[in-house]
Design a protein around this nucleic acid. Structure first.
Lengths: 256, 256
DNA sequence: CGACACTTTGAAGACGATCAACGCCGGTGG
DNA sequence: CCACCGGCGTTGATCGTCTTCAAAGTGTCG
């Protein structure tokens, strides 16, 4: 991937929405590209926070090890998405999660102090950041509600719809962008439970074979996943799959 | 409660941290006090978002009704805490939750457009808001992880510690600030399950009778709650109970 | 072809939701 | 003053779901 393409994906990040090309140029001068081969660790929980990151290529897993030896994936971040921005802002000095490359990745990193300075200097940048973090907070709330209220199969159905939206996949027929083990960890369930949940979804017009998924009746899946979910159109799973709004994280910014 | 006392609690809100007294005065001119008798509804999910709020007295329950007729309490907010700030910021135009007064409450409300203006105008205010929302995002993440990984009894133990911190209670012996029904709903569990969880905690040096709680061995409870929890010192339940840092939501602001 | 990572499946047990009955308390009305 | 009622909390029985442990199956890559 050439330098040009990289900067294009980075430039489209919601973080820079509304900035002029020149402003973005100025910002990007402060970031450095960093190559991260598959499986390598970017930082571990407990490390000091020194950078904030933006993904130019690849997928990063954010996860946390628990005292009892388990591991929960907090998030799986993709091209154009920033991460660690909320860690930077909320006053902790050390990472509360670890980050590993799921596949060969390329990230752009910005020093923390630079971020804080930029916030003070650029209105728009600060507003974008507020937006992004607010949305994260909302999604996390949704997540907590789902965990408390929905069955494993519902969580999976919901997550698949979210995946389609995020990666711009055709829900009729798509391939999972990463392993089932990772998805199960992301959903906070056992791999065995995940596997069985897929079995149950066969009755709901969603079939899988290997990493390939087909949703035959999207209406039904939407209904099934979120009958126990209170989000209606605010639920990630419900964000209109037909809308052409592009990846979800690019939307919903403050308009004025 | 006199007007003076009200403004004092409001003034101590994390939102205004670092502002001069004059600046705060200026800000407060834009808010209007609003009395909310016990049980009355401030807004319902689906209503247009027109204000952002700050609690001067009392307790507000934020909850969401689900399609299947259930109800999940998202948050229970107390004196000095702002709410709806993230709803305002993330670009939705309608409330995704309903708000009801748990007891007689007094709130201060600020028009949404004023909030957005103020963010653009005052660095510090924007930074405070970023901080607060980041922390909310983090807490929500923690919450989701807890829901996925911890047993009902662990959730309860964790929540009690958080309560002590938030309301500045003596963990050796305190009274629950609101009903068990509300707490159960907040924790996303059935009231019956909550009740049984209390029974189990008796083996863990935590005893209850009515709304009165006694924690005999705080170390043990901390360990019990978060052996399945990965937060160590980042877990609300683990925020040192002996620290004199005051309510948790007042801490951790950006220092420069 | 063998090693290894990933996934599926089975059987056992723990846990939480649900339905239901009961006790407790405060308030209201006769 | 007492009877009744409704909200709240506890407890029991039952049932479905999820985790865990374990074994077997699938795939890929050297």
């Amino acid at each position: 991937m050439t330098q040009t393409v990289v900067s294009e994906t980075v430039r489209r990040s919601p973080l820079f929405q509304g900035l002029t090309e020149e402003e973005i140029d100025g910002v990007l001068l402060n970031g450095q590209l960093y190559s991260l081969p598959r499986g390598s660790v970017l930082f571990r929980q407990g490390d000091a926070i020194t950078y904030f990151y933006l993904i130019a290529r690849g997928i990063i897993q954010l996860y946390r090890g628990t005292a009892d030896g388990h591991e929960k994936t907090l998030d799986i971040v993709t091209v154009g998405q920033p991460f660690c921005e909320s860690e930077v802002m909320n006053g902790y000095s050390h990472h509360r999660a670890s980050a590993t490359a799921v596949n060969d990745a390329l990230i752009m990193k910005f020093p923390v102090f630079w971020l804080k300075e930029t916030i003070k200097r650029h209105d728009k940048f600060a507003l974008n950041l507020l937006c992004i973090i607010s949305q994260q907070a909302h999604i996390a709330e949704v997540e907590a509600e789902h965990q408390a209220r929905m069955s494993a199969a519902q969580l999976v159905a919901c997550f698949f719809q979210w995946l389609c939206k995020l990666y711009d996949l055709d829900y009729h027929s798509f391939t999972l962008p990463y392993s089932k083990t990772l998805i199960a960890s992301r959903l906070g369930m056992d791999l065995a439970t995940f596997s069985r949940a897929l079995g149950r979804l066969k009755n709901q017009h969603l079939s899988t074979s290997g990493a390939h998924v087909e949703i035959h009746d999207i209406e039904r899946i939407g209904k099934y996943a979120c009958d126990g979910c209170s989000f209606a159109e605010n639920c990630p799973a419900h964000w209109s799959l037909k809308g052409k709004s592009g990846p979800a994280y690019l939307r919903n910014h403050i308009t004025r």
